[in-house]
Design a binder for these strands. Sequence first.
DNA 1: TTGTAGGCGTTATCAT
DNA 2: ATGATAACGCCTACAA
Lengths: 359, 359
Amino acid sequence: MSQNIKTATRSRRGTNRVTMEDVAAHARVSASSVSLFLRNPTAVSPRIAPRIKRAIDALGYVPNKLAGSLAAARTRAIGVVIPRLGRAFFAETVSAMQTEFDRCGYQLLLGATEYDPAREADLVKTFLSWSPAALVVTGCHHDEATHTLLRRTNVPVAEMWELGDEPFDLQVGFSHHAAGEAIASHLHSLGLTRIAFVGANMTRDLRAAQRRDSFCSWFSQRSIDVFVVDLPSSASHAAGGHALTIALDAMPDIEAIACLNDAMALGVMFEAQRRGLRIPDDLAVAGFGDLPFSQVCVPPLTTIQPHASTIGLRVARELLRRLDAENGESASNAPKVVDVGFELIARESTRRFRDCSSQ
Amino acid sequence: MSQNIKTATRSRRGTNRVTMEDVAAHARVSASSVSLFLRNPTAVSPRIAPRIKRAIDALGYVPNKLAGSLAAARTRAIGVVIPRLGRAFFAETVSAMQTEFDRCGYQLLLGATEYDPAREADLVKTFLSWSPAALVVTGCHHDEATHTLLRRTNVPVAEMWELGDEPFDLQVGFSHHAAGEAIASHLHSLGLTRIAFVGANMTRDLRAAQRRDSFCSWFSQRSIDVFVVDLPSSASHAAGGHALTIALDAMPDIEAIACLNDAMALGVMFEAQRRGLRIPDDLAVAGFGDLPFSQVCVPPLTTIQPHASTIGLRVARELLRRLDAENGESASNAPKVVDVGFELIARESTRRFRDCSSQ
DNA sequence: TTGTAGGCGTTATCAT
DNA sequence: ATGATAACGCCTACAA
C-alpha cells in the first residue's frame, strides 16, 4: 500500500490563468463539453450552450493555444521568412498572405533575414520549434543548414519570389532570368547601346544578381558591354543617386540605366534632375518592382511589375489547400511550381521620340 | 487484477517527431539531463555533454517550444500589432524591435489591423491565446473590446507611436499634437497664409487626425483658415497628387500644403511638377515621416523625423528589462512613459528666398 | 449529447 | 550531477 500514496502532490500551480476547467465549473458542465463547444458551438445541447458562453465571458476565458496545439499536434501558425521588412514588395506579399491566412484562423510568424544566410537558418529552426502548420521562405537559394532543416521537416514548405530546381513542396514566383532579359530587350529595342546596370548588395541579394546577369549577358550576346555598379550599401534611393554619379564618371555618354529596384531608379532620376539631365531624352531609366510611386513620378517610371500580392495570395491558397487535404483525403502531395509571371510596364522614363510601340 | 490492466493503451502517438526522449535514449542518459543540457550546457558533466550534443544533431532534434512553453508557463514570443505592414515607419520600428528581441531569443508575432478596430481586438485576443511574454500595440486609442483584453491580461503591454493618458505598462512615442503644431509654426514663420492640410483615411488613422487638428487649430488661433482634404483612399503617392488637384480647385492661390505623410507629399510634388508649379517658390510642401527618399528628392522635402527605429528600440529594451525583472527581484512595475520626441527637418521644399533660419 | 481518462513533449521538483 | 515523476492545459478516443 505504501507505494500507492500520492507523494505530497508537488504543486507547481503558480499560474492563475483562467482555464477551461474553470469555465466548466462555472457552467456546471465538464471540460470536454466546453472544448466541444469551442470547436463547434452547435454540437452541444442548446440548453448548456448559453451557460458555457456566459461562463466564458464572465471569466474572460482565453483558450491556451499552447496546450491546444500540443495536444492536437498541430498549430495554426505559419512561419514566414523574408529578407527585409522594409522592402515594399515583400510587405505587399506578406500583407496579401496575412489577409488570406487570417480568414482561416492562421497566425503569421514573421522573421527577416536581412539577407544573411545564417539568420535564415536560425529563423527556420526557431519557427520549426513552434511546430508551424507550414513554412514560407523567400527564394530558392539556401545555405546547407537551412536546406537540411527544410528537407527534414514534414511541414509543407513554400518558396516564393523565385523559381528553381527541386522544389520542396511549393514554389510561387517568376523567372528573374526572364525579367532581366525583358528589361534588356526593351532598352535595346529603343536603340540604346550605352548601358549601365546599377544595384547594391548584389552578392547577397541573389535574385537581383540573377536579373543583372541575364541583363548583361543579353547585351553581351549582341556585343554590347554593360557597365555594372554594385554598391555595398542597401538598395535605397540614396544609393541610386550615388550609383548614377559613378556611372557617369565611368561612362559620360551613357544613354540608359537599369536599376535593381524602383527605389534606386527614383534615386537615379532625382540625381539626374539635379544635374540637369532630362529623362528620357538624355537618359533612359528602368526599375523593378512597380512601387506605388512609379506610376506617378515625373516622368513615370518604366519598370517590371512582379505581382507581389498575387504571390502572397497563391502561396496562401496553395498552402491552405494542402493543409485542408491533410485532414481529409490526401490530395496531390507532389511538389508544385506556380509561375505567376511578371509584366514589363513601359512608361515615359524610357520613351523615345521615335518609339510608339510601348504603353 | 482485472481492474489493473492497462486498458488497451489508447495510443495517439501519430506524431513521428524526434523527441527529447529519443535524444536521451540515443545518448544513453535521461531526458532530464538533456533538458538541463539544453538550457545550460555546463550544468552536465563534461563526459555526457558531448554525447548529448552528438545525439542532437545525429537525430536532427528540434526542441518543441509548444511543450516547453506550456510546462514553463512562459513563452519567448511577443505579439506586435501595427496598422499596416507596408507603412515604412512601422516597418522600421518593427525591424528595430526584431533585431533587439532576437538577440535575447524572443520571437515576434506580427499582425496588421489595416486600421480596423475590430481586427485589432481579434489580433490581441489571438496573441493572448499564445501566452506571449509581452504585447505591443500601436497607439493609445482602442475600442472597448481591445481595452478590456489589454487591461485584464497580466502580460506587459506596450503602446507605441503615441502618448496618452492611462498607460497600461509602457508607452513609447511622441506627441502628434506637438508635431502638428511644429509644422504649422514652421509654415507660418515663412509668412505663408494660404494653407491646406491634405490626408487620407483620417477618420481611422487617429494619429494623423491629431496632427491635422493641432495644425488647423494653431492657424485658427491666428485667424487663418486651413483648407483640409481628407480622401477616402489610403494615404499613398497617388492620393497626394489627387489631393493637390482638389486643393488647387478650392484654393487657386494656395501657398503651402502640409501632408499626412511623406508619400503623399511626394505625390503632391510630382503633381505640382506636372502642372509646372515650382516648389518651393509657387508652393511649399511639408510631409511627415522622413522616409528614405525625402532627403534625396527634388527638392528635398521638409518633414518630421519621428525616430521610428528609436521607438522600436526603446520598446524592446524596456520590455526586456521588465521581463528580466520578473525572474529576479521585482523592479519598478509602475507604468512608464517614454517621449522620444521628433525633429522638424526643414529642407528646400519649404525654403523661401528671405528665409535663412531653417536648416 | 455528455463525461472520463490518457497522452501531447516539455519543465521543474524532488530524491538519489 | 543525474534520474523519476508530477504538473502544464487541452484534445480526443471511448464509454456511458
